[in-house]
Amino acid sequence: MKGRVALLGLCAVLLALLPLTGDDVLIQYGIDALLFATLAQAWNIIGGFAGYASFGNSSFYGLGTYGTAIAMAQLHLPFWVGLCLGAFLAVVCAVLIGLPILRLRGHYFAIATLGLSATLSAIIANLDISGRNIGLILPLTRNDTMFYELALVLLVAATGTVAWIARSRFGMGLIAIRENEDAAQVMGVNTTLYKVTALVLSAFFTALAGGIHAYWITFIDPASAFDLTLNVRMVIMAMFGGPGTVLGPVIGSFILTFVYQLLASSISTAAALLFGIVIVLAVIFMPRGLWDLAGGLRRLGPRYFLQNIRAHRL
């Protein structure tokens, strides 16, 4: 356990030193990868631990984005105030939608969250303070190293939170809800409180990632801020790495972001297609993600794949 923490700490330090290379392109890829990993990790809290597949996270991202942008571009407040505003909006939204929507189970919850991004996007596009459908331009800061380090700090914080969840009573309650909510509640788990808390934590980290991204990219509009495909990517990355694990979503999103960049730079037209094929194969051969694959291969060897294929009745 201690060895593991030390190793992870070393990884974080090495990642923190990456900007010393002075390679601008590498740093930009790094910011992207770190923010995506944070998004996947944040989704992991509600989707992986509590078992509620949220498609409302792109809304939390959008609120984080707009909170930051409105604070900075319209109210001329400092960046950190914007981050707080964005996180606040996302948390309030998570509570307001969580209380009614988290009563819905399984697919119904996922479907109910699907409409949220479009709704919020439409509201934002009609408000003066958010620049209507034209969007907002934030003050320019050419300091990629700062953005990189901020994104890294956020990822470490999100992962630390998930590591705590995985070992805590709270986390055991979330897992119990995921495994069987009826049993969880008669055993004493306050399911409503736990689910809403999980959604709030997820919204918090998602919004901060959105805020950092907004300041970095300096221009936002409703369509890009409330983009449902971003939510789909969070889900894919978390599922690919291992939902309900501490490091799976991070490793999964690092690998997928890397594969995607690689494909996009060499064979751009076929990249999306190939990416899709990678996902389909991954779901068939390792439906519980890389993390489960690692354990399964050690235990069963190649039989692990056969077992998964059989489970799918292919």
Partner: peptide
């Protein structure tokens, strides 16, 4: 029966101890 299917037998029962009467034993 409503077991927690993908948890070990020990973890299944631990959930009861962690929550349960009086809110349960908080130490895992």
């Amino acid at each position: 029966m409503k077991p927690f299917p993908r948890l070990s037998v020990l973890e299944n029962v631990t959930v009861g101890a962690l929550f349960g009467f009086g809110g349960g034993e908080h130490n895992r």
